[in-house]
Amino acid sequence: MTDITRRKLMTTGGALAVTAALPASATASPDGHKTPKVHHMVYFWLANPESQSDRDKLIAGLKTLEGIPQVQKLFVGVPASTMVRDVVDNSFHVSELMMFNNTEDQDAYQTHPLHLKFVEECSGLWEKVVVHDSLMV
């Protein structure tokens, strides 16, 4: 096999491997357009971090947000005991990750009655919130 043929085979094989590893949401739709996905990542620091009851109430409140039609996926978590590294910030107490089909759905979620109720009932539980919204490419 010549060097050029080997290089072409490796390049094509690598491109196919990357494409196969992409999630379905990152692949083109039948009309050839990519469907954008919005990931809404929120980190909460509790006002009373020693209170298991407050943590449980916040987690339960977050899980009610799954009832909002625009929310495609919802994951709620707490810090993992992973290796200590300078780039890891696990100082938060509760986190959530939501996935939306597009920014319009994420905007609609913000004013949905279930979200407004969650904020009203649970905002006293946290002292700090950090939000990271990302458009998947």
Rank of each mutant, 00 (worst) to 15 (best):
Q52G: 15
G67Q: 10
V76G: 06
S29I: 03
S53F: 14
A28C: 00
S81G: 14
A26E: 05
I68M: 02
G32P: 00
A60D: 10
T64W: 00
T35L: 07
K34V: 04
L65C: 00
A80N: 14
P36W: 01
S91R: 15
N48L: 09
T35Y: 00
A47P: 10
H40Y: 07
F44A: 05
N48R: 13
P69T: 05
M41C: 07
Q72C: 02
A47R: 12
S25C: 05
G77S: 12
P69E: 11
A80W: 12
H93E: 08
Q52K: 15
A26M: 11
V88N: 13
I59T: 10
A24P: 04
L74A: 04
T82Y: 08
A60K: 14
H93L: 04
R85L: 12
W45M: 08
E66A: 06
A80G: 14
P49L: 08
K57G: 03
P69W: 07
D31Q: 01
L74P: 02
H40P: 00
S53W: 13
V38T: 02
H93V: 02
V71Y: 01
S81A: 13
H33E: 12
D54P: 09
A26D: 01
N90P: 10
D56C: 12
A80C: 13
D89A: 09
K37C: 02
P36D: 01
N48E: 15
F92A: 07
Q70C: 05
H93I: 05
A26V: 00
S25V: 03
L46P: 06
G32D: 02
Q70S: 12
H39C: 00
S91Q: 13
L58C: 08
N90E: 15
K57T: 15
T64M: 06
A47H: 07
G32C: 05
A60N: 11
R85S: 11
V76M: 04
H33I: 01
S25A: 11
P69Q: 01
V78L: 06
A28D: 03
A80P: 08
F44M: 06
S25F: 06
L65Y: 03
D86F: 14
P79G: 03
G61D: 01
K57L: 15
Q52Y: 13
D89V: 09
H93S: 10
T35W: 01
W45P: 05
S81F: 12
E66L: 00
M83R: 07
V71H: 04
L46R: 09
S29M: 09
T27I: 05
D89G: 08
V42T: 02
G67K: 06
V78F: 08
D54F: 10
F44G: 02
K73C: 05
A60Y: 08
T64R: 11
